[in-house]
Design a protein around this nucleic acid. Structure first.
Lengths: 340, 340
DNA sequence: ATATAAAATCTAAACGTTTACATTTTTAAT
DNA sequence: ATTAAAAATGTAAACGTTTAGATTTTATAT
């Protein structure tokens, strides 16, 4: 309706100067009890709410964290974001979120707008790990924390999941069940997660002296469709794999859909482990075994790192967290029929 | 690093006044070609980025939309939010998101902070439909759009899904397949969606002269656990229902889990339709029939309404959208065995 | 060349805070 | 009662924009 009351209105009503009002709304102390009371009353009477904009103007900080994710529709991210949001709010920060659709160009544009808006820090899962397109942030001295995907061309705090270890564990498990022909549905090899999960796969094979077979490696793009096609391809092979490892959640979904459509019996004819838990995992029969990442924790640690970086003046060294994923054994991997 | 360049630095370098610089960064025209060029060069040279904070200060608008949802982990909301976010960005607005965990108190607190931050508008799915706790927004003249849940105690634009119609269609479908003993797992009756979906159920029964049977009504709370228990309860009944209608996605998940655990054969012994599509719907055999809501559209329309409200000075009348859900017939409802 | 209108540019005041510093009031010590 | 020290309060200048309105420059008509 009418103009919102300002600190000045409060001051006038309480018959003090704005400085004193400012002191009480910021709990800085040094105000006589009686005066404070008068001010508080004035505030209530007027329904005064201080302007964060004006405050940011003076303080040069917005208490806002920018979040950039590549695809908010991927169920992985809402969980990370939820962790971030909650932890941030605890610490008095709010978040502004944008999804880039995996486009570095959109990302660059968003970075620009975040800077305009004066975010105090950014948590990002970048669409391009080189990171040159977001150098601007770094140049402005805005703290950055990279989540789930590293940034190559300059130093930032990073919180990653141990992808190599995660897929190693999964494949190891399959090997120990007697599988020899283990297929992998890969993610893009120019992304850290895609590459590292492939590395873990190879490492497990090597360690157990299973010969590496090119035909067991299908390239996917982390999207559902590619998981579906990959399964088809594997099904059409002369010698089919007895187990499949899928490198991410969406491809897992695609793959499982294909298995159903192909009537390729999950757990019986082909064992399966997927990277990342998915909602469907416990619905289908047999229940899917998965490598599960602590997404909430991922977000929380990101906030913690960012918080320190935003509030500590001294030059902190670059920090890198590596969270361990957890192998959740359910029912989708059985002992291989061909026992040795 | 060093202090960011301001409009003043640009002006100095381009040898003009700040007013002229302001004109060019806002494309207001009325600037000589040569001057503009000089200014643009200066901007690039300095890497100047205008401060949105200072701008908001003067303009008294932040181009920020606050979003309040009760539970960001419910897969329904990320989809709505995604629709909002995208449409908002198109229109030059950014969003700040908070999840309340269904707590009106948290909601009230968030509202306060949103006001502090000067959001231009709010899109909300409230935790308490009375809405008294968010009256503050209304008092400040901040436009509000209610999504999915109405607000009772004052007038706001609203975009809802036709719940009555949605559940009516679902139950009608079951009836037409010959079912007589149709159970409903209800949501909380003090929420609009919970109540309306129950209404649709009753309406269908009445219209087809099926006697209303109290034992077929189980109260749930829209959470997974209650869906699970509801199914158990129904299973334990002397005369079990031949069909179940679940009032939301989470309860659907719980219910289906129970059916599996109870070995109560979905589609054969008991037909099923759920309100809201769920990821698992097309995975389990038989595939789940559902009432599907257009969540992306829900978000987009909300932004459209809010946008108009924010930018039109005249008093717009209260507007109310009612989106029709769509019944997606898949495989989980079969003709009732007991034909008449 | 001059007068006038139009276009470009500038000046300065806001916007609502915070904060260093100055001033006044209170308290405590004599 | 006087004075010094401490505490409370006030003054005024930022912060980086936008924007009326004033002023200067340029273009146009005579």
């Amino acid at each position: 309706m009418e103009c919102k009351p300002t600190i000045e209105d409060v001051a006038r009503l309480a018959k003090v100067s704005i400085a004193t009002v400012s002191r009480v709304i910021n709990n800085q102390g040094g105000v006589r009890k009686a005066t404070e009371e008068r001010i508080v009353n004035a505030i209530n009477e007027l329904g005064y709410i201080r302007s964060a904009v004006a405050r940011s103007m003076k303080r040069k900080e917005t208490h806002t964290i920018g979040i950039i994710v590549p695809d908010i529709k991927n169920p992985f991210f809402p969980l990370v974001v939820s962790g971030i949001e909650q932890k941030a709010r605890e610490k008095g920060y709010y978040t502004i979120l944008s999804s880039t659709n995996e486009s570095p160009m959109v990302e660059e544009e968003i970075v620009k707008i975040f800077i305009e808006r004066g975010v105090d820090g950014v948590i990002i899962t970048t669409a391009n790990e080189a990171g040159d397109h977001i150098k601007l942030l770094h140049d402005q001295g805005i703290p950055i924390v990279a989540v789930d995907r590293a940034i190559k061309n300059f130093e930032v705090d990073t919180v990653l999941v141990d992808n190599v270890n995660g897929s190693y564990q999964a494949v190891q498990h399959l090997i120990l069940q007697g599988h020899k022909k283990i297929a992998i549905i890969c993610g893009p090899q120019n992304t850290t997660p895609g590459h590292e999960r492939f590395l873990g796969y190879k490492k497990a094979l090597e360690e157990y002296n299973i010969p590496f077979d090119e035909s067991m490696v299908i390239q996917g793009d982390f999207m559902e469709g590619s998981g579906y096609h990959a399964a088809q391809e594997l099904f059409d092979l002369e010698t089919r794999p007895t187990a499949i490892f899928s490198s991410n959640n969406l491809m897992t979904i695609g793959c499982v859909k294909a298995l159903i459509d192909l009537d390729w019996k999950l757990g019986e004819e082909v064992s399966f482990i997927g990277f990342d838990d998915v909602e469907i995992a416990t619905f289908i029969k047999p229940k899917l075994s998965v490598v599960s990442r602590p997404m909430n924790t991922l977000g929380e640690i990101a906030v913690q790192l960012l918080y320190e970086r935003m509030n500590v003046k001294e030059n902190l060294p670059k920090r890198q967290y590596l969270l361990s994923p957890e192998l959740k054994i359910r029912e989708s991997c059985q002992l291989s029929k061909k026992k040795i």
